Computed example of a mutant assay.
Amino acid sequence: MTNSLIFFDIPSDDPNAAGEFYAEVFGWENDPRPLGKYHRMVPGGFFKKKDGTDSEIGNLHMGISNVANVRPNPNPEGVEPRFIAKEGRGPRIWVLVGDDDTPERILETAEKLGAEILWRNHYWAEFNGKNHCFRDPWGNEILLWVKGGENPEIPDDYTRE
């Protein structure tokens, strides 16, 4: 068996607000464990098989850790640094937009809640996907991905690479 990615965390100085942000933007369940210290975001659903039916593998969850004391850690007081890194490139989280949602709705909601829109309407031929990107209020980049499909129609207002 290979090593498996099971979870990832993003940093926040207000995990409760970040949990509420992602619940509203994506419709994910905000599971505070415990409230304000660590929040698990549960998207629900399952990875799809090639035929479009659900597999037995649940969609990955995302954690939101409190930069003041990132858990777990053997030291109960946590360790430095205790602030959000704002300079330079950080992780980019990719989210596949579901068939029952749109990138326009997601971007509008994210911006209303304090996100910065980094770009809209870009097509990346290498992976056949339309994409859009925003930075959440805590500095994390979220890249929205829409599958191009077979013989994709790319609107004229999209940039391409």
Rank of each mutant, 00 (worst) to 15 (best):
M1D: 15
M1C: 11
N3Y: 12
S4E: 09
I6H: 11
I6V: 15
F7Q: 11
D9S: 11
D9C: 03
I10P: 01
I10G: 02
D13Q: 11
P15Q: 04
N16S: 07
A17P: 04
G19M: 01
E20R: 08
F21C: 02
A23E: 06
F26V: 12
E29H: 14
D31W: 01
P32A: 10
R33S: 09
P34E: 03
G36W: 00
G36L: 04
Y38D: 10
R40E: 03
M41E: 05
V42T: 13
V42R: 14
P43K: 13
P43M: 12
P43N: 13
G44Y: 01
K48Q: 10
K49N: 12
K49Y: 00
K50M: 07
K50D: 09
D54Q: 07
E56G: 09
E56V: 03
G58Q: 15
G58I: 03
N59W: 03
H61Y: 01
H61W: 08
H61K: 06
M62N: 05
S65T: 13
S65F: 11
N66R: 06
N66A: 03
A68S: 14
A68K: 15
N69I: 02
V70G: 03
R71N: 11
P72V: 01
N73R: 09
P74G: 01
N75A: 05
N75S: 08
N75P: 10
E77P: 00
E77H: 08
G78M: 05
G78V: 11
V79I: 04
E80C: 04
E80R: 03
P81V: 08
R82S: 12
R82V: 13
I84R: 00
G88E: 02
P91Q: 06
I93E: 13
W94H: 15
W94N: 12
V95W: 07
G98L: 04
D99E: 14
D100R: 04
D100S: 02
D100Y: 02
D101G: 02
D101W: 07
P103C: 14
P103V: 12
P103K: 11
P103Y: 15
E104T: 03
E104C: 06
E104Q: 10
I106L: 14
I106Q: 03
L107R: 07
E108R: 09
T109Q: 04
A110Q: 04
A110T: 02
E111F: 00
K112M: 06
L113N: 12
L113Y: 08
L113K: 15
G114V: 08
A115R: 07
A115I: 13
L118A: 02
W119H: 15
W119C: 04
W119I: 00
N121D: 14
N121V: 05
W124Q: 14
W124G: 07
A125Q: 06
E126W: 10
E126L: 15
F127L: 13
G129H: 01
G129C: 07
G129E: 03
K130E: 05
C133T: 02
F134M: 10
R135Q: 15
W138V: 02
N140C: 13
L143G: 01
L143Y: 05
L144H: 03
L144A: 08
K147W: 09
K147G: 15
K147S: 10
G149L: 05
N151K: 14
P152R: 09
P152V: 04
P152D: 11
P152M: 00
E153C: 00
P155V: 13
P155N: 13
P155E: 15
D156K: 05
T159W: 07
